[in-house]
Amino acid sequence: MKQALGAVRRKFQPWNDPASRPFIEFRNVSKQFGSFTAVDHQTLTVFEREFHALLGPSGCGKTTLLRMLAGFEEPSEGEIWLDGKNLAGVPPHRRPVNMMFQSYALFPHMSVEKNIAFGLKQDGMPRGEIAARVDEMLKLVKLEPFAKRRPDKLSGGQRQRVALARALAKRPKVLLLDEPLGALDKKLREATQFELVGLQESLGLTFLIVTHDQEEAMTVADRISVMKEGKIAQIATPAEIYEAPSSRYVADFIGSVNVFEGTVESSSPGRLQLETDQGFTVRTATAPVLGAGTKAWFAVRPEKMRIDHDRPEGDGVNMVSGEVWDIGYLGDVTVYNVRLDSGKLVRASVMNAQRAVARPISWEERVWLSWSDDAGVILLD
C-alpha cells in the first residue's frame, strides 16, 4: 500500500486499496460545445464516502464534469457510472445525486422550512415524513430558530446552510457542490469549510465539490483533481499535491512556489545536482535519476527557505544571495521578496513565533536564502 505523504485528515484512503471499488467513474469522458472541448477524454474515479474536489481556473472543465454527473449535460463521448450503474439516458431527477449551486437558488417567497421541504413534496413524500425530515435537517445545520424566516431575512452563511439542508433532505448518494462558499466573506467561508467536512463525515455521504479556491480544496478534500484546459493534471491528496506536484502548472496553482530552471549536472539514486540558470547549484534528495544535461526545474515553497544576514555554512549548494526587495507582514507570517543578482524575485516566508526578533531583516539589505536537500522537488514539465 502506498504511504501517504504529509498530514492526513482521516484514515480513509480506499484509492490505495486494490480491492476497493470506485463509487463514481468517469470513463474516457469528453464533452464538446460546438468546436470547443470542455472535457477532453478524461477518466476519474471517486470512492464512496470520499470528499473529492475538482480544482482549477475558470473554463478548465470542472463544472462541466459536475453537470454531466448530475445529468444536466450528456457526454459527447465516454461513460459515467455511479454505484455500478451506467447513467446514460438517466434523467437528472432519477439520479441519486443532488446539486447545490453557488447562487443557492432559494425560493424567496418560501420560509426556510418550506424551502427544505420543496423537493420532498415534489417526490410525493407523506406530510408526516416531510415534517420529520425537515426537522432533522434544521437540527443538522443548526437553523431551528430560523425555520419560519424567509431567505431575505437571513445572513449569507445562513442562506448557505438552507441550501445545503435542502440538498441533503432527499438523502442523495452523492452531493454535488458548485462553488458553494463563493458568496461568503473570508472568515465565514473558512469556518464553513470545516463545518462541511464535519457534516460530510457524520453523514457518511460522497461529496464532489467544484472550486477555484485552492485553500478551500486543501481544507475540505480527501483528494483533489487539479484541472487544466479540459484535462486532469494531477489527482492526489492535498499534502501530496502541495509537497509533490507533478508539474510546474500544479506547483504554481497550489500555493506559492519558487521555480528555478536549470540543467542536470549529475544524478544517482537519492541525489541529484542541478546547475540553475541563476548561477547557483541545487542538490536534492527527492528526485528521479536523470541523465546529465537534462533540462529540469526545481520547485521549492517559500516556507521551506531560510533567510539570514550571513552566508550559511556548507559547501555552497542550496544557497543564493540577493537584496530584500519587499516585505509583507501578515501577522503570523512575514513574507520576504528577495531580488537575486539575475533580477529574479524569490519569495521566502518566516513564521513569527516570537514577538521580537534580535536582528530583524529590513528593506534593501543583502541576505542569503538557503534550504535543505529535501525541501523541494525536481520537475520535468
Rank of each mutant, 00 (worst) to 15 (best):
V134T: 06
S349G: 12
G279A: 08
A353R: 13
D326E: 15
V338C: 10
L196K: 15
E229V: 07
E303I: 06
A183W: 08
A169S: 15
G182Y: 03
A4H: 09
A358N: 14
F253R: 03
G343N: 14
V197L: 08
R94T: 15
G255P: 11
T192K: 13
Q234Y: 06
A299G: 02
S267V: 15
W81P: 01
P288G: 02
L5I: 15
M110P: 00
G119S: 04
Q160F: 03
W371H: 09
Q122W: 10
L168A: 13
P238Y: 10
L143E: 00
K62M: 07
M68V: 06
N98E: 14
Y336R: 02
I307T: 07
F47M: 08
S202F: 06
K228F: 12
V377C: 11
Q278W: 04
P22D: 07
A296I: 00
E129T: 11
L44F: 03
R166Q: 00
G328A: 14
S372Y: 13
K304D: 07
A163C: 08
V300W: 03
S76T: 15
A356P: 13
W363I: 12
K85M: 13
P145R: 03
E275L: 15
S202K: 15
A169I: 09
M218R: 10
R301Q: 01
I130M: 11
S225N: 08
E113C: 09
P108Q: 05
R95C: 09
P18M: 06
L69P: 01
E323Y: 06
K2L: 10
M125R: 15
M227H: 03
V46H: 12
R9I: 14
G262K: 00
L188W: 04
A375N: 04
A70S: 01
K2W: 06
K170S: 11
H309V: 10
F26L: 12
T192W: 09
L176S: 03
T263S: 15
M99C: 06
G322K: 05
E50Q: 13
S76N: 10
W371C: 12
P108K: 02
W371K: 04
S30P: 14
K114N: 04
V320T: 13
R189E: 01
V324F: 03
E50T: 03
R161F: 05
T286P: 09
K186L: 15
A105I: 12
A53M: 08
G128I: 07
P75N: 07
F47L: 08
